[in-house]
Every structure is written in C-alpha cells, then in structure tokens.
Design a protein around this nucleic acid. Structure first.
Length: 889
RNA sequence: GGGCGCGUAGCUCAGUGGGAGAGCGCUCGCUUCACACGCGAGAGGUCGCAGGUUCGAAACCCGCCGCGCCCACCA
C-alpha cells in the first residue's frame, strides 16, 4: 500500500507489526514516487545542496562508508522535512590508479597512448598476464568504464538498502564526459590566467607506478634502515692542507649524487672547513662545504651530505644554495648510467669513478645501497659498523616502495602564493565540529610547494593541450596549443588540434598531445561543479573568478553548496583542493559548511582496513540487523569523532524500531476517538515536554549535530513509553460513564496521536523505513516529505491549552511515584499489576498540590487503591510508603 | 619536535559551574489487556593524576601521565 493512498480517517494498523520486508517495500515506493527527486523549480533560497563524497569504486564499500553516509543522509532528511529542496546527488570516483590496476589484470591489457583508437576493439578472450595486449588510451578507458559499471551498480544497491535519500537521477562519475569537460575547462582557465604552469623540476615520484605524486598523497611508514658514518676527504687547496670530514647518512647509495656538505653557520667545529672542497669517497667528486641554518648541529656528525635528491630537505638546500643537479636515479627506481668525466660529473680520478659506479648502475636503490657499503668498506671510508635504526619514510599512499625525487616536467597549480587567502577561506567556512579547522590551517601552513597535478598515467582526465614539434621533431613545451572550449572533452592522444592533420602527429613541424592525465584530486576537487552541471547553460561558465554563477540553470541553483560532508583524513586533499579550485575559479567558497565525520574503529580502537582483515561487510550487517538499526548505530557517532564498531548498538537500534511500531499501534488503537481538546493536565504537560525536545532536536540539527538530536529524542521517547503511556492507559481504557471520563479518554487519544506524530517525524531522519511504515498507517503521503515538527505546530496541538508549571510538575511527580510503587512491587517479587492498598507520598506542600492533578491517572497506573500524602519541609525528603494489598492468589 | 582530540560504571558513550547518567552486559523479579524483538527493579564509578580559580569543579585554568590522529627540515 502506498503512503499516499491512506488517510487519517482509515488508519489501518497491522495485527502484529514487524520490521521484516519494510526496506524493500519502502525503497520501491520512494523510487516509484520520486520521493527524493530534486525540485529544480525551487527558488535558490529554498535549495539545500550537498556535495556528496564520491566513493572510490575500485574497492568495496565498508562499514566506515555506511557510518558517514548515514550522517549525511540524516542531515538531508532533516532539511527536506524543513521544506528544503534537497540537492543530494551520488558520485562514483572511478578515475585513477586502482581501477587501472584492476583492468590490466582482469582483461590482460596495457595502455599504450601511442596506439590508435580501435572502435571495434574487443578484449582478449583469454587474458594473458605475461603478454598483455597494448591498446589505446580511449580503448583502455572504455574497459575501465565497463568494469567500474558493475561496481557502481552494487554500490547503488547497498545505498538504497541503507535508505540513503539520494536523487539517483543526478548521479555522476569522475571519469565521465561531464567531469572531463569541467576539469579540462577549469584547467584551461587556470592556464590562461597563469595559475597553472608547467615546469621541469624535482618532483615526488613513485617508482612502481612511474608517476609524479603530490605532497598530499604521501604518508609516513616506519621502515628499518641503518645509519652509515662515511669519510669524505678534504682536498688540499693550499689554504689548510688535506684532511677529512665525516658525515652520517641512511642513503649511502646517493654519494655519487652528492653536491655539497653542509654545516650550521654557527657551528665552530666546522669553521675551518667551510668554503673548502670535500671529495666524495669512491668517486672523487669535489663538493663544496657550505652552511645553512636548517642544519641540525645535534644530528649525526653535525655535517650533512646534500644529494640530488634524497629527500625534500635536499630540494630546499639545492634550491636555496643554487647547487647543481647530479642525478643518479631513474624513473624506474634504478641507478642510471652517468657520464663520469663529462660536465657536472668531474672527478679527481675519472677511471676509478667509472669503475666504482659500474658496480651500482642498473641496480635498484636497495641493491645499490648494499653494494656501495661493500665498496666503502673495501676502500676504508666507512667508519665503524652501520647502526641499525627505524625511521619514517615517505611513501605514496597507494605505493609499495618509498617515493623518490626525480626531475621531470610536470603541471602545477599555484598554491604557495595563495596560502593566506586559503586560510582566510577556511575561516569563512563553518566547520562541524569547529576544531577541525585547525587541521586545514596546519596543512596550508605546512605546504612546501605548488600542487603538482600531472600524473604519468592513463585512466584519468587528459590535459587538453598539444605541443608543436620543431624541424627536428623536438617538443616545444613552452608553446602549448590549448583546446577550444567547444571541443571539450578532448583526448589529445587521439584528437587533433586545430590547424593540423592527423598524419602530422609525431612528425617534424607537426604536433604531439600532452601525454599525462590529471591527479585524481584535480578532478574530484570540482565535485560541486560536476554534480551541479556547471558545464550546462547560462550561469555556469565560471572559471574567470567572476563570483557565483547567476541565472536559472541548475548550477546557479546549487552553487555555492550548503555542505560538504566528508571524513577528517581527507581535509588535506579533497577539502583543501576543492576550496582552492573554487577560490581560483569563482573567488568564493564552494560551500558554507563542512560536516566532518570520524572513522569507524574496530573494537581494539584500530582503524579498520582491508589489510588488517578486520573489515565488516555492510550488506551482512544490513541483513542481520536491518537498515534502521545500522543507521541508528551510525547516527550515534558524534560529528568528527571516531567510533568503535559495535553490533550491540545495532541491536539497540532494532529494539527502538520495534518499540516505535508497537507504541504507534497503541496510540492509534481504534478506541476512543480523538477529542477536540486536551482536558487533562498530564496530557498538556507531556505535549509541552515533547515540544521542548523537538526544539532541542531542531537546534541540534541546525548545528549539524545529528547525534545529539537522536539522543535527545530517543531519551524522551523511552520516558514517554515507560511513564506517560502507562499513566494514561487507565483513563483511556476505563473512561467510565461520566462526561468527564469520556472527555479524559478523548483527551488521551488526542495527546497520544499528536505526540506520536511528532515522535515519528523526529525519528524519520534516522529510521526512515520504520517511520515511513508507521506513518503510512494513518497519514497521507510520505513522512519524508512531511513537515518537521516546529514550535508553531506544537503550540497549535495544544490548542491554546498551555501546560502550566504546576501541571508539568504533576507529570514529573506522577512518574516518580510510579517508580517507587514499581520498586516496592519488584522488591516484594509481585507482579506490576499487584494491587496497592495505600500509597503515602511524602513531599512538600507545593509539590503535593501539583500531584493532585495526577492522582486520577496515577491510581490505575499503579493499581493503587488510596493515595495519601504527608507534607514534609524539603523535597529531599520525598518518599513513598507503599502498602501492598494482601496476596490473594 | 609542533598541532588537534580523547581519558566518566565491565563494554560503548552522553553529560561544559550546583542532584554522577544512558544503553548493553550482569543479578533478581514479572505471561502487565502496544510491545517477551517485552516490562520492572538492583548491584556497579577516588569522573586519568596533581595543583589552582570558585561558596561550589567531571566540567574552567596550569602542569603531568596515557591513548589516538594530523603535521614536521625524521642527515
């Protein structure tokens, strides 16, 4: 039965309400009725737009995704009930390395950008790992799309099962044509304005993937290593005679790449050395001894070897001291051949340098390190034994070997010069929770270079530029040919620039396409533009720092968005880069709020990860506990706070959902009919209490604190079931024959229904399935499109019969007395319905006066024959003497 | 080394100036007419440690200890 086929008049409550089957029933109904469809006709100010995180498609969704997406969904449902047109798309992040790897293995292919596109291509029937088929970039991309499509369907099914109120007609992918068009257009804008530039420079490099990577993609890993003390000789320059200098290094294989030795400027120990030349062991290359303030006198010998390049500090020293490049490391992580004796490779003993280096060339870093230690030992330049140690080494987060620094030509976006502006943007943004801003500022302050956005990979967005070739066929990098806006998206490996013929590709005086693709963050930093269709119609041009888009197009309706929900670990990547791009293209924040969620930790408080084998599959959880129960657990996790995985709380959630079914059944029971007014004090007091909780939940949601909202509502609901409902049962079931009795029963029905309606809606963002079910028993339409309970509505429910202080106290006191009566029965091991001959309440005069209002309800609720009172001076002396009637069993 | 967060009952966690709480777990009791996927009751805590502010501190301030995360110029 659809939600909109019932009305309050013909409320139908099942004999035995149950949770089974609700998920299928209601997710089908929501889809059929377009319940979550974004209303494009809504005026701008009524739109609430969410910049949904696109999950990476090449893996699988885990319980951490369920956790944080539930938070967002609760916010979305709240805003929708507040009357907002909620823009809540879903994206799939399918572009990038993980997909490439899967496609290579799955189909037995390799991408070769020099191969031409084959429109009739079909992957090999029997994929060969050893002899992969070389295919063009467009063909490779097609296979990537084919594989990710399957995952995307599985993801969507899980999200629907979880009850995400996404508008599935607005789904986007980060590799799709729109994403490419928008990424390329933004890039061309940056290029035209000088915000993007190309440079040949030392670049962080992953030797396995053979691509540049960005600072933001690095992580530290502890690795064993050894400290080697190495002797350099000091050349006799006639000023102070020969001598020696000792340095310590964990990377002796880079001695041939040494370009200087450094001491701290104030370090007296090396005063005599500074300004002279040292000679590298084995290779006899003269390197100057210089000073730099970043040298730590306490570390090693106080003298440090600068290589091109061992780490990022080397880059700083190299740049600031104007040192030469002497590079020995190739892009594959092996030592390359170098021309000893040629310019830049001078040696005091060229023959020997060649001989020694031959032992290293072609070896990997680790192999070379092992070998050079042997050579140093033979030569007597290794002082003492290498000292084993453990140190943190930089890795590409998806890589398996440490990153190296390799000189290469890359595209960069200017960030260093914008740091102050970005920090200012971070301060304009509302962070939930607020302390997360510190992570952003720390990151921006710690940036060491512009953002390298080019990757030497294939499944990504190509750079929309070509380069002319000169007479000799050399690439003229400084004269890039940009694609026209109307051409986008382009793939320069197959598309041809204006003014050239396809045959001119790679020919002298012809052209070549830029071979690289963009960093995956260079695309996902544009998710607001992609989701909002910034490439469509008027008002979405952007890219010229002209401020927010205007007009009636979708993009103008949704941008800047209201909220970016995401986890705290990608503040430095996704959040940072999105702010940067929006700042550069629109001179504006991309959203007003950032809702930061925590992680799910396993019960030992470790981060869940596949490698640890502690991952719980979400579908299994949904089957076991039900979506509402899983959502309840997720929504209990505070914003920004890591939460331990706890199936027990899912049981609690299930319990709550069942309670809601049964409480609804009770409140909607056929008898007696709802009255026109609330004649009973306890009814009015209860409504007042529920109104306060609704206001509290509203305030919490407005602060993006869904967890607090849930906690407050739930606490009130259990109180309501345990006390209020019990207190009014007698009046409702046994109204008696008087008008007063009948009015009391009708008042109870009215109060129960009004409060039930509020509770159902307050729980709806958290437990969408069960709430829709109980709503459908008596209300038309979907609860998820019903209005959020607000103060005015609740005032109306009271119909001018505001509870006063005395009535509210009566309700509290009635609950207190009921508790005491229950305690007495429990201690006497009697059933709760056991009759009480007499209950004597000790309390202050004021409170006893309030209790009078509740006595008629209290007596049947506690099966109390006589309620007597004793006045005391102090509320602290509150007590109830319970005299149980004789056991008549 | 710097920054941020956390430390409350066996477990998971609320609680930011005035009664130390919830759920689970545990113990006991109850077929109670919405609900045994239930209901009622109970036991259980020096609120990490130490100092300070205050009439009053779990909360505010200082220091320390422990845990986690992020960052760092980790030679």
């Amino acid at each position: 039965m659809a939600a909109n086929e019932t009305t309050e008049a013909d409320a139908t409550v099942p004999e035995r309400p149950a949770l089974d089957g609700l998920e299928r029933k209601w997710s089908e109904a929501w889809e059929r009725d377009g319940c979550y469809r974004f209303d494009r006709s809504a005026p701008r100010e009524r739109v609430f737009a969410i910049d949904t995180p696109p999950p990476t498609v090449s893996g699988s969704l885990h319980v951490g995704h369920v956790f944080s997406y539930t938070h967002t969904d609760a916010l979305a449902r709240y805003q929708r009930m507040r009357g907002k047109a909620v823009f809540y798309p879903m994206g799939w992040d399918d572009n990038g390395l993980p997909t490439e790897r899967r496609v290579q293995n799955h189909f037995g292919v390799r991408c070769d950008p020099s191969v031409a596109y084959d429109p009739d291509f079909a992957p090999p029937a029997e994929p060969s790992e050893k002899e992969p088929l070389s295919i063009s970039r467009p063909n490779f991309v097609e296979l990537c799309l084919r594989l990710t499509e399957t995952d995307e369907r599985a993801f969507e099914e899980l999200w629907r099962r979880l009850g995400l109120s996404v508008d599935w007609s607005m789904t986007y992918t980060t590799i799709g044509a729109r994403a490419q068009r928008i990424s390329q257009r933004s890039f061309l804008g940056l290029l035209a304005r000088g915000e993007a530039y190309q440079l040949e420079a030392p670049t962080l490099w992953d030797v396995d993937f053979q691509t540049a990577v960005a600072q933001a993609e690095l992580e530290d890993r502890e690795r064993p290593g050894a400290m080697h003390r190495v002797r350099f000789s000091i050349a006799d320059d006639g000023s102070g005679g020969a001598g020696e200098a000792l340095i310590e290094t964990t990377r002796p294989e880079l001695i041939p790449a040494c370009v200087a030795l450094l001491a701290h400027p104030d370090d007296e120990r090396f005063r005599a050395l500074v300004g002279r030349d040292a000679r590298t062991p084995l290779f006899g290359t003269r390197v100057p001894v210089l000073t730099h303030s970043l040298v730590d006198r306490e570390k090693g010998t106080g003298l440090v070897m600068v290589c091109t390049f061992g780490d990022l500090t080397d880059v700083v020293w190299w740049r600031e001291l104007g040192l030469p490049v002497r590079s020995v490391l190739g892009p594959d992580g092996r030592l390359t051949d170098v021309p000893w004796g040629a310019a830049g490779w001078e040696s005091d003993d060229v023959e020997r340098a060649r001989r020694e280096y031959e032992q290293l060339a072609g070896r990997t870093v680790n192999q070379a390190r092992k070998r050079i230690v042997e050579l140093l030992v033979e030569d007597g330049d290794l002082v003492g034994e290498p000292q084993p140690l453990t140190r943190a080494v930089k890795f590409f987060e998806k890589g398996e070997r440490p990153v190296e620094i390799v000189t290469s030509r890359q595209w960069f976006i200017r960030t260093m010069s914008r740091r102050e502006e970005l920090i200012e943007r971070g301060r304009e943004l509302s962070w939930h929770p607020p302390y997360m801003r510190a992570r952003f500022e720390d990151w921006v302050n710690g940036l060491t270079g512009d953002w390298c956005i080019s990757r030497q990979r294939f499944f990504g967005v190509p750079f929309p530029v070509w380069y002319p070739l000169d007479d000799s066929g050399a690439i003229r990098h400084d004269e890039p040919i940009a694609a026209r806006a109307e051409q986008l998206p382009v793939d320069p490996s197959t598309d041809v620039p204006d003014g050239y013929a396809p045959e001119q590709r790679g020919q002298p005086n012809g052209f070549v396409g830029d071979p690289d693709v963009m960093d995956t963050w260079a695309t996902s930093s544009l998710t607001p533009q992609i989701a909002g269709h910034a490439d469509e119609g008027a008002g979405g041009a952007g890219g010229d720092r002209a401020g927010a888009p205007a007009g009636e197009g979708l993009f103008a309706k949704v941008f800047p968005m209201d909220v970016r929900p995401q986890a705290h670990d990608i503040i430095r990547t996704w959040l940072f880069s999105t702010i940067l791009r929006s700042h550069l293209d629109y001179d504006e924040l991309p959203w007003a709020n950032a809702a930061i969620s925590g992680w799910v930790l396993d019960p030992d408080r470790k981060k869940m990860s596949k490698s640890k084998g502690n991952v719980v599959t979400p579908m299994h959880l949904l089957e076991q506990f039900g979506a509402d129960a899983v959502r309840y657990w997720a929504a209990s996790g505070r914003p920004g706070t890591d939460t331990a995985f706890d199936p027990k709380q899912m049981k609690d959630g299930r319990r709550l959902a069942v309670k809601l079914l049964n409480a609804s059944k009770f409140a909607l029971a056929d008898l007696p009919a709802e009255g026109q007014s609330l004649t009973s004090a306890l009814d009015r007091a209860m409504i007042a209490r529920v109104a306060r909780v609704a206001a509290d939940a509203t305030a919490s949601f407005d602060e993006y604190d869904y967890a607090r909202a849930l906690e407050r509502v739930e606490r009130c609901f259990w109180w309501y079931c345990d006390y209020y409902v019990e207190l009014v049962k007698g009046r409702r079931y046994d109204p008696g024959e008087t008008d007063r009795g009948r009015a009391g029963a009708a008042s109870a029905s009215r109060a129960l229904r009004r409060s039930l309606s509020v509770f159902q809606r307050l729980f709806a963002p958290f437990l969408p399935f069960v709430c829709e079910e109980v709503w459908s028993w008596w209300q038309p339409g979907s609860i998820h499109q019903a209005g959020w309970p607000d103060a005015r509505e609740l005032a109306d429910a009271l119909a001018g019969e505001q509870a006063n202080e005395r009535e509210e106290r009566a309700l509290e006191l009635a609950a207190d007395v009921l508790r005491e009566v229950r305690k007495a029965k429990s201690q006497a091991r009697r059933p709760m319905r056991a009759p009480v001959a007499r209950a004597v309440v000790h309390d202050t005069a004021e409170r006893l006066a309030a209790l009078e209002l509740a006595i008629e309800d209290l007596r049947p609720a506690g099966s109390i024959d006589v309620v007597a009172t004793v006045e005391v001076d102090d509320a602290e002396q509150f007590a109830v003497d319970v005299e149980l009637a004789d056991d008549d069993s």
